[in-house]
Simulated assay, not measured.
Amino acid sequence: MSARVKICGLSTGDTLAAALDAGADLVGFVHFPKSPRHLGWAEARVLAAAVRGRAERVVLLVDPDDAALAAAVESVAPDLIQLHGRESPERVAAIRRLTGRPVMKALGIGEAADLARVADYAAADRLLLDAKPPRGGDLPGGNGLAFDWSLLSGTALPRGWMLSGGLRPSTVAEALARTRAPAVDVSSGVETAPGVKDPGLIAAFIRAVRAGDAPGDVAAGLASAPRGV
């Protein structure tokens, strides 16, 4: 079974079309004012409507209050709400109840101890494993960093987990081969500048996944994964 692909941080009609035409399984819209990929609700509504059932719509929020959640559901009608802040397991469960939508919780990974939090987020429908942002950084994701994939060796991960952090067209096939991730997420890795997606890079990323993915049991084949990939 082919690994699923999410293109996140889309902000223009042209790049959304490029992602859809290339066969993205999920497309992500960011609502976080500090991000160069931020969309207001009016902009997000227009782009989300253009998806027309061709992919899953994901809205990325950071520590949203209830008003932001209501606006996200009304504007984007998301198939999945991605939480990329410091949301507690209890808040994740509350957001699922409040919105009636599946939730994906992003977890920053920098050392083996960070993986202990996986079990705490059983209320999430999916988990996204991303690199921790640089110390003092303003953005919880989209920083173009990868974490040490060998940390995943022997770790039991829930079905449908997603790998993110520092992936590019030139590295995603190796990432899939080493981690056997069932899904991958990219944002800055298909940009020419922060927030500026490139249609050619989007297409190249998806082609690389389709050509080189290897989903399966994450416990297999990770002992030799290099540090700082």
Rank of each mutant, 00 (worst) to 15 (best):
E74K: 13
F147M: 04
L127C: 02
D138I: 13
A94M: 13
D148Y: 10
G85E: 07
A124R: 02
L157S: 03
S75T: 11
D148I: 06
A124S: 09
M104D: 00
G141M: 11
L98I: 14
F147K: 01
A131F: 02
A71V: 11
A72F: 03
L129N: 02
A131C: 02
P158G: 08
L107P: 05
T171W: 09
R96M: 11
S170W: 11
L80A: 09
A93N: 12
G137K: 13
L80V: 11
D66L: 15
G165K: 01
D138N: 14
L129H: 01
G141I: 10
S170L: 11
G108Y: 01
A106P: 00
A68L: 14
A124F: 01
A112I: 09
R101C: 12
W161E: 03
L163M: 12
I109Y: 00
A123V: 09
M104H: 04
P140M: 06
K105S: 05
R168Q: 10
S153M: 12
V76S: 00
L115T: 05
G137M: 13
V73K: 07
W149S: 03
P89Y: 07
R97L: 15
P140K: 03
G141Q: 11
L115K: 03
A113S: 14
R86K: 15
L145M: 12
G144P: 07
R159I: 12
D65W: 10
L107I: 06
D130F: 02
P102I: 07
T171G: 02
P89F: 09
S170M: 07
P134I: 11
A113I: 13
M162W: 07
P134Y: 12
G137H: 15
P134G: 15
D114G: 01
G154F: 12
L163T: 03
T155G: 05
Q82N: 12
S153Q: 15
W149Y: 12
D130A: 03
D148V: 10
M162H: 06
R135S: 14
L80F: 10
K132T: 09
D138Q: 15
L139P: 03
A119E: 13
T171I: 05
P158Q: 08
V118C: 02
S153K: 14
Q82Y: 09
Y121S: 00
P89C: 11
I81E: 04
S75R: 05
A123K: 07
P169N: 05
A72I: 08
L139Y: 06
P158I: 08
L163H: 04
L157D: 01
D120E: 15
V92W: 04
F147Y: 06
A131H: 02
P140V: 04
P133Y: 09
K132D: 09
F147E: 04
R159A: 15
H84D: 05
A119M: 08
A67T: 14
L157A: 07
G108L: 02
D65E: 12
M104L: 15
L167A: 01
N143S: 13
S153Y: 15
A131T: 02
D114W: 00
L163A: 10
R117E: 10
K132R: 15
W161K: 02
L167T: 03
R91T: 13
Y121H: 04
A131S: 10
G100Q: 13
R135E: 15
G141Y: 13
P133T: 06
M104V: 08
R101F: 05
K105I: 04
R135N: 13
W161F: 07
T171N: 06
L163K: 04
L80P: 08
